[in-house]
């Protein structure tokens, strides 16, 4: 990984800005009644995550995040919301009752507590490979062939080539499935 050219304080400030905005947008996203408003907040979450990816030295993933997630997947969601024409948001009060919400909150807390403990605790330090500094120095010294895309493309087309090819089959199956499912049924004879 190349060392960041940012000032450390500016880096931290931007990181917390993107992170807290993503968090606030996610909370706004699950609490909106209108599906369109929820989708817009989710787009905001995805843009913030793209910023975080760039700050974590994954520039290509950040660009793909904006193009594929915010640009393509969310547009499909908005198209379907528009197509279904669900009516006004006030008629859509779709949240579960109070007990359901309390239960969901407990499940969420039970889920997040161990994960937070893991990310705060000593485990993270033990996960850091011992030769990290040497590898970082070697990566910084080596000429970066292919810029930021090269390090992603090389394992994608060598080590994970089979998975990459299978992905194309998956996409073809998804296209055919979506067309068949979405087709208006002509009257069966």
């Amino acid at each position: 990984m190349q060392p960041n050219e940012f000032h450390p304080i500016a880096y931290s400030a931007a990181f917390y800005f993107f992170g807290l905005t993503a968090l606030a947008s996610a909370i706004a996203f699950v609490t909106r009644k209108s599906p369109v408003a929820a989708a817009m907040w989710l787009v905001n979450v995805m843009f913030c995550l793209a910023g975080l990816y760039v700050m974590l030295d994954a520039q290509f993933i950040g660009a793909i995040q904006v193009l594929v997630y915010a640009g393509a997947i969310m547009v499909v969601f908005l198209f379907v919301i528009m197509l279904l024409n669900l009516g006004h948001a006030s008629e859509l009060a779709d949240a579960r009752g109070r007990w359901g919400q309390v239960l969901a909150l407990l499940v969420g807390l039970a889920l997040v507590a161990p994960l937070l403990a893991l990310s705060k605790g000593d485990l993270l330090n033990r996960m850091i490979p011992p030769d990290l500094a040497a590898r970082a120095a070697a990566a910084a010294a080596a000429p970066t062939a292919g810029g930021v895309i090269g390090p992603v493309a090389e394992p994608l087309f060598k080590e994970y080539l089979l998975a990459f090819e299978l992905t194309s089959v998956l996409l073809l199956a998804a296209i055919v499935g979506a067309v068949v499912l979405g087709k208006r049924r002509t009257d069966a004879r």
Binding site: A22, I27, V45, G108, V112, L115, L118, S119
Partner: peptide
């Protein structure tokens, strides 16, 4: 980043 990931997943 990992903590944010955990919280987003829980949300």
């Amino acid at each position: 980043a990992l903590a944010l990931s955990a919280v987003l997943f829980a949300i």
